[in-house]
């Protein structure tokens, strides 16, 4: 076998493997495959918890509602690799509701603005900007602004509000079927 033939063979293998990898990547096989059953289970859990919180709020049991949502923080939220970005959106919904309640009812188990900022950061996660624009993430980002204001960081508050505004603007144009 000549050197030329070897190179051709090697090239064939590399090109073949490359095409296969590209195909698999496009098919979503190499990307972390989301597991719908995990997502549905998570969604059902979150939905049940929201209903429980609804009932608690109806009874004006704010402490109970906050405790229930705090309990959700202990859930092992699945990674995007397992349940896709939708899992992060569900998390943003839960954290958004919790932070809203904590801001509106500071008398219940009071938290410092720094602790609330930490809570928002935990809920948003590091890569929330990579998630498709949605109302739940926008709300949590807006809440980050409110907390920054409480921390006396108006500059950061403005940045967060504008970020949330941008998201909502995009959502509005999406709903209207127009371009921003």
């Amino acid at each position: 076998m000549t050197r030329h033939t070897w190179i051709a063979t090697l090239l064939g293998v590399v090109v073949g493997a490359g095409v296969m990898l590209a195909g698999l990547a496009q098919a979503g096989r190499l990307a972390p495959a989301p597991r719908p059953e995990v997502l549905v289970t998570l969604a059902q859990t979150v939905d049940a918890e929201h209903r429980r919180v609804d009932l608690l709020l109806k009874r004006r049991d704010y402490a109970g509602a906050i405790a229930a949502l705090e309990q959700m923080r202990t859930v092992a939220w699945p990674e995007a690799a397992v349940a896709g970005d939708a899992a992060a959106v569900l998390r943003h919904d839960v954290y958004g509701r919790l932070v809203r309640l904590r801001l509106d009812h500071p008398e219940v188990d009071p938290k410092t603005p720094d602790a609330l900022a930490e809570l928002v950061g935990e809920g948003l996660g590091a890569d929330y900007k990579a998630i498709a624009t949605n109302a739940f993430t926008a709300r949590l980002v807006g809440l980050r602004g409110e907390i920054a204001e409480k921390q006396g960081r108006d500059g950061d508050a403005l940045v967060a509000y504008e970020e949330a505004l941008d998201m909502n603007r995009a959502l509005l144009h999406q709903a209207l079927g127009s371009s921003p």
């Binding site: 076998m1 033939t5 063979t9 064939g12 293998v13 090109v15 073949g16 493997a17 095409v19 296969m20 990898l21 590209a22 195909g23 698999l24 496009q26 098919a27 096989r29």
Partner: peptide, 21 residues
């Protein structure tokens, strides 16, 4: 034979990619 099998493998891989798509 090896050369042939590698070519076949390459084709098979490409076919697999198409199937995946």
């Amino acid at each position: 034979a090896m050369h042939m099998s590698l070519r076949t493998l390459s084709l098979a891989l490409a076919g697999l990619a198409l199937t995946a798509c």
